[in-house]
Design a protein around this nucleic acid. Structure first.
Lengths: 121, 121
DNA sequence: CTAACTGTACTATTATTATTAATACAGTTG
DNA sequence: CAACTGTATTAATAATAATAGTACAGTTAG
């Protein structure tokens, strides 16, 4: 289900959070869909249930999922707020990166060329 | 000279490496210019000399500086190789980010708009 | 030559943090 | 009731960044 990099600087639980977020944002995990239980997913990924728990907890805090004791963790309604937050984050990152690229001598034309190319895939 | 985030996930020495790299790439540190000694810089930044040493060592390995025992560390000639390596890295990052943005529903026009805006600053 | 600066090397210690491990308790459901 | 869910807690482990302290070697100005 996921591929994690245990030797990344980014902790496993954060990697999990990001991956699951992506799935939710891109609607690959539908509203009210049940996520694997902490124990099952831990076994699948051969990591500790506590690590999964930590990721799920974080996702809950951020509003991506909700959990019901005894039943499981479920995808919550992906609000437009979440989408726009995500967009803002990407725009920030993009701005930083584009600035750097321009600073290194890349041209606006060049950068837009890259955009168009990716757009057509 | 530098502002470091001691509580970042990225280690201090890596932050240093990146900052100095930027200065070199953007020619704010000229060829053969002497860098602050490990002890002096350590005192300025109130961190341990060993941490500076580690950063300088890394910069030397990557070819950004050279060091002469007893004299100091100096900026080496910034080869076009280094520049192109940097560009490749930025392109990779950019590709990833643009893909994500498009996936979230941003349009190519929109992205190019951002590029043009930054370009005119 | 010597003092005061440079880089370099090495070991030990501290601090932080992610992860694991092991339990325990609580709610749900067939 | 058994077997699944989530949740909580504490302790141990592992990895690593950073510090501390010291030592040695080369350079240079006085």
């Amino acid at each position: 289900m996921f591929d994690l990099d245990v030797r990344s600087r980014k902790p496993i639980y954060e990697q999990l959070v990001e991956k699951i977020k992506e799935l939710i944002i891109n609607d690959l995990l539908k509203k009210d869909e049940q996520l694997p239980s902490v124990r099952v997913l831990a076994q699948q990924l051969t990591i500790n249930p506590n690590t999964i728990q930590k990721a799920y907890r974080e996702l809950e805090v951020q509003g991506y999922i909700y959990s019901i004791k005894g039943k499981g963790n479920f995808v919550s309604e992906t609000t437009s707020t979440i989408h726009s937050e995500k967009r803002v984050k990407i725009e920030d990152e993009l701005t930083r990166l584009i600035s750097e690229a321009l600073y290194l001598g890349m041209t606006g034309d060049e950068l837009c060329g890259i955009v168009r190319e990716i757009e057509q895939r």
